[in-house]
């Protein structure tokens, strides 16, 4: 787990990753979301936990995810987040954007 191998998330990409993580439709709490992101990215992406919660609240305010209290796998009360319909649309939009952007950057990097 070397320091060099980890990448801080780009500004704005955290929102996209959160939405993607919730795409399956299963409700997840904050901890699970951050674990999932790190796990899937094979620990390359490090979620700044300090910005995770403000981001979740922001998405909730935008109406893209909604939160409700539930019981965690360990029997503790936790706040579970779920994708809303408009969140799903937003995810598609942002995924498209991201793909276009990364493709473009990729092309530039290869050409130059």
């Amino acid at each position: 787990m070397g320091h060099e191998s980890r990448l801080d998330l780009l500004q704005g990409t955290l929102d996209l990753l959160i939405l993607r993580t919730l795409q399956s439709g299963v409700g997840l709490h904050g901890w699970a979301i951050s674990e999932r992101i790190e796990q899937i990215s094979q620990d390359v992406l490090q979620v700044n936990q300090g910005s995770l919660y403000p981001a979740l609240h922001r998405l909730e305010h935008q109406g893209w995810i909604k939160a409700e209290w539930g019981v965690s796998e360990l029997g503790r009360r936790a706040r579970f987040y779920r994708l809303t319909r408009s969140g799903r649309k937003q995810l598609e939009l942002e995924t498209d954007d991201w793909e276009r952007l990364s493709a473009a950057i990729g092309r530039v990097l290869k050409m130059a």
């Binding site: 709490h29 904050g30 503790r76 936790a78 706040r79």
Partner: peptide, 10 residues
């Protein structure tokens, strides 16, 4: 409570 839960899990 939400943040406490996170810390506990960590």
């Amino acid at each position: 409570e939400e943040l406490r839960f996170h810390l506990e899990m960590a």
